[in-house]
Design a protein around this nucleic acid. Structure first.
Length: 431
RNA sequence: GUGGCUGUAGCUCAGUUGGCAGAGCUCCGGAUUGUGAUUCCGGCGGUCGUGGGUUCAAGCCCCAUCAGCCACCCCA
């Protein structure tokens, strides 16, 4: 026997048993997005490496050590997308979707980061992302957050996630603050833990959420980001808070909330759960007014977020919503071939023609009636249709209610669709 | 990239101080002819993650490697 080939580390198959939940999640999310008038955009999974370097930031971990980058046959450096925002901006810009107009978009798909796999973190993972363009007021920030709040209600996760909020100010505000912070922290560098020293050099704002006690002590007297906010940024943030308060969305201001990607400014937010171990962030986003220009377009305000589908699935698995089984009707016939089998297949076909939305599974392959009944049971079907010699001769079919509520009976084949429709539609059966 | 724990049947796991590889579930078949989820009986199924080493003998001890889980880093 030759050696078996396994999937790539951190890149998982989603098996039928799980895909039902994925589909349930995706359809609910899509409904909510549609209810806000958002439209889908689909981008390629591979882009020029340069796109991510310019958007995410050269010195971020993502770009420095987590990207799947390779040379195309013509020598171009290509990268499997580590996130969707850059691609989305590129696509919109490339097709003129941003000039003098407003866009509300969403996408769904796999992202790739070469990290060590862990609960809720994989090398190929899936995000549902939302990006809006052309709106600079706090109203759109609020809309996007209200949308996510509705999502949690729709998924039954409201009680398990909390919202954290912060404002990073404009990019100039942030730059001034960063300088002040670096000056302060450098003066106390000897009291910082190793991680924070490294961050100080690479991404100073991230020192803010250090866990080390000594570092926290130093941070007590550090300059505050809020003191560096421009009036514009401050008003924007207060405007957003006013809307959220009015809408009854609860949140916590977290001054240490600093998104890892370089392009964020002003509003940043995260939805966090405590039920997933170390990977608590389930949805994160914010405003990135500078990114479009940074990628060569005209200055365009933008707000967006992304949520990790695997993490949401992990949460949902803990509370399993009732999921549909594969079939509503299972068709069984006593002979593996011959008249019964042909009639069974034809009957199933005609039911699919007539009964829209009803799922009919026809038994194929061998097995006695007993075995076939067992399969019928496993399929979750409400009714099993039995075709044997007697039924063929009489042009009928025996209909068995697998829940035993309706007595088994013979129904004329010609009247079968109506019989089933009546029982499914009447509401006495919920398929 | 760093550290800790774990890899035995399709799945969940047991396996004594090294001495011929086990259970439950699933699957398949049977318990009077054409009727499922319960019950009873039987059967299929493993080079013990992989590669080396120690030993008369390795699932068990040693080394390496791969994978999974958990945490750090980072992030959805």
């Amino acid at each position: 026997m030759s050696k078996k080939i396994a999937s790539i580390r951190g890149m998982n198959d989603i098996l039928p048993e799980q895909s039902a939940l994925w589909q349930w999640l995706e359809s609910r999310v899509k409904n909510v997005l549609a209810s806000y008038g958002y439209q889908e955009i689909r981008m390629p999974v591979v882009e020029h490496t340069e796109l991510f370097k310019r958007s995410i930031g050269e010195v971020t971990d993502i770009v420095e050590k987590e990207m799947y980058t390779f040379d195309d046959r013509n020598g171009d450096s290509l990268t499997l997308r580590p996130e969707g925002t850059a691609s989305c901006v590129r696509a919109c810009e490339q097709h003129g979707l941003l000039f003098n107009q407003v866009q509300r978009l969403w996408y769904l798909g796999p992202m790739f980061r070469h990290e060590r796999p862990q609960a809720g973190r994989y090398r190929q993972f899936h995000q549902i992302g939302v990006e809006t363009f052309g709106m600079d007021g706090p109203d759109i920030d609020a809309e996007v957050i209200l949308l996510t709040a509705r999502l949690w209600r729709e998924l039954g996760l409201s009680g398990r996630v909390r919202l954290e909020l912060n404002s990073l100010g404009s990019s100039e505000d942030r730059a001034r603050y960063r300088d002040a912070l670096v000056v302060y922290l450098s003066a106390h560098e000897d009291r910082l833990d190793e991680d924070s020293k490294r961050r100080l050099a690479r991404n100073p704002l991230r020192v803010l959420d250090a866990k080390d006690a000594g570092t926290r002590e130093v941070l007590k007297d550090a300059p505050l980001l809020t003191e560096y906010l421009s009036d514009d940024a401050r008003e924007h943030f207060e405007g957003l808070r006013a809307i959220l308060d009015r809408a009854g969305v609860e949140y916590q201001i977290n001054p240490a909330l600093v998104r890892g990607l370089d392009y964020y400014g002003k509003t940043v937010f995260e939805w966090i759960t405590d039920d997933l171990g170390a990977q608590g962030t389930v949805c994160a986003g914010g405003r990135y007014d500078g990114l479009v220009e940074q990628l060569g377009g005209r200055s365009t305000p933008a707000v967006g977020f992304a949520m990790g589908i695997e993490r949401l699935i992990l949460l949902l698995e803990q509370q399993m919503p009732e999921l549909p089984t594969p079939a509503d009707i299972y068709v069984v016939s006593v002979a593996e071939n011959g008249a019964e089998k042909i009639t069974a297949l034809m009957l199933a076909e005609s039911l699919r023609d007539t009964l829209a939305g009803i799922r009919v599974q026809c038994h194929c392959g061998g097995g006695g009636l007993k075995a076939q009944m067992k399969k019928a049971d496993r399929s979750g079907a409400r009714f099993t249709l039995i075709l044997g010699e007697d039924e063929i001769a009489a042009k009928t079919v025996s209909v068995k209610d697998m829940r035993g509520i309706i007595e088994q009976q013979q129904v004329a084949q010609a009247a079968l669709a109506d019989w089933l429709a009546a029982h499914f539609v009447s509401g006495e059966v919920n398929g």
